[in-house]
Amino acid sequence: MPFGAAAGRGAGASRRRGRLTARAGRGGRATSPRAGTMSPTQAMERSYAALKQLLRDGAFAPGYRLEANRIAEELGVSMTPVRDALNRLAGEQLVEASSGEGFHVPRPGEAELRDLYEWNSALAVMAASTARIKPAAGAVEEVMGADTLADATAACFVLLAASSPNAELRTAVARASDRLHPFRIAESQVLEPVLGELEELLDPSPRRPAAIRRYHLARMRAAGELLRARSGL
């Protein structure tokens, strides 16, 4: 399936919230453990995983209020693990928390989105400059075989970071990648992304830092259009 078609469908689906249980695991509520059979840790991890996947997929509009009671009802758990999951996601900057207003999906402006792409660029250049670990056999092919271009892009940067021995750098890349994922889905509507770009980023040649900066500069310039595409405007 062409990446453009897959990414386009993902962007359309991202504007529909759907049921949380559809993302909570195979079979959703029908096959998942009842709240009474789950430990508090299991309930929190299940809530966290379901919400994180939806946030990465852009299933909630920017600024959308995440109501713990509704989420808990959808997942069949109490509100406590949902609040714990939301606080954990706030720590990863996938959710915004404010006193008296609860939890919301972040609504970045153009400058903030440009900063995020620039931050990801700096992290990727740092990873490339400290690369010491060779990718496992078949790792690059696995990246290129991802279901969508957005997924391939996320896997590309995770693989690039994995070449560095710096654990803090790997964590920072993974978190930036999660925050950028909804916009990477929108990229197919605004830019003309191709797999060749990712191949350049994974090519361990002296030209790689320049390729990383060029890749991100194109997206920084398109920040306004990406925000509008992400919001369905």
Results as ranks from 00 to 15, higher is better:
Pro106Cys: 04
Glu112His: 08
Ala136Gly: 08
Tyr117Trp: 15
Gly102Ser: 07
Ala111Leu: 10
Ser121Arg: 07
Arg132Gln: 08
Pro135Gly: 02
Ser121His: 02
Val125Gly: 06
Arg132Glu: 06
Ala136Tyr: 00
Ala136Glu: 05
Gly102Lys: 09
Ala122Thr: 14
Pro108Tyr: 04
Pro135Trp: 00
Glu101Phe: 11
Leu113Pro: 09
Ala127Met: 08
Val125Trp: 00
Ala137Thr: 13
His104Arg: 15
Ser121Ile: 02
Ala137Met: 10
Ala131Pro: 01
Ala128Ile: 01
Glu118Gly: 14
Ser129Tyr: 01
Ser99Arg: 15
Leu116Met: 15
Leu123Ser: 09
Pro108His: 03
Ala111His: 13
Trp119Asp: 15
Ala122Asn: 11
Glu96Cys: 09
Glu110Leu: 04
Gly102Glu: 05
Val95Ile: 02
Pro106Gln: 07
Ser99Asn: 12
Val95Phe: 08
Ala122Phe: 05
His104Cys: 09
Ile133Phe: 00
Asn120His: 14
Ala137Arg: 14
Ala128Phe: 00
Asn120Gln: 15
Leu123Asp: 09
Ser98Ala: 14
Met126Gln: 15
Glu96Pro: 07
Pro108Ile: 01
Val95Tyr: 10
Leu123Gly: 07
Pro108Leu: 00
Leu113Gly: 07
Val125Tyr: 00
Arg107Gly: 11
Gly138Gln: 12
Ser121Val: 07
Val125Ala: 04
Ser98Thr: 13
Ala111Cys: 05
Gly100Cys: 06
Ala97Cys: 07
Ala124Thr: 10
Tyr117Phe: 15
Glu101Met: 12
His104Val: 03
Pro106Ala: 03
Tyr117Met: 12
Gly100Asn: 09
Arg114Met: 10
Ala127Ile: 09
Asn120Phe: 08
Ser121Pro: 03
Lys134Leu: 07
Arg132Asn: 03
Glu110Arg: 12
Trp119His: 15
Ser129Gln: 12
Ser129Lys: 10
Thr130Glu: 06
Arg132Asp: 02
Ala136Pro: 02
Val125His: 02
Ser98Gln: 15
Arg132His: 06
Glu118Ile: 13
Ala124Val: 06
Leu113Cys: 07
Phe103Ser: 05
Ala124Phe: 01
Asp115Asn: 11
Ala122Pro: 09
Val95Ser: 04
Glu101Ser: 14
Gly138Val: 09
Phe103Arg: 10
Pro106Val: 04
Val105Gly: 15
Thr130Lys: 08
Ala127Asp: 04
Ala124Pro: 03
Glu112Ser: 06
Gly138Trp: 02
Gly138Phe: 01
Pro135Lys: 01
Asp115Met: 05
Met126Gly: 13
Glu96Arg: 15
Ser98Tyr: 11
Ala127Lys: 08
Phe103Val: 03
Phe103Met: 05
Ile133Arg: 02
Gly109Cys: 11
Leu123Tyr: 03
Gly100Pro: 10
Leu113Val: 07
Val125Phe: 01
Val95Cys: 02
Pro106His: 11
Trp119Val: 14
Ile133Leu: 03
Leu116Pro: 12
Pro106Thr: 03
Asp115Arg: 07
Glu112Tyr: 08
Glu101Val: 13
Pro135Gln: 03
Ser121Asn: 06
Ala128Pro: 01
Arg107Glu: 14
Ala124Ile: 07
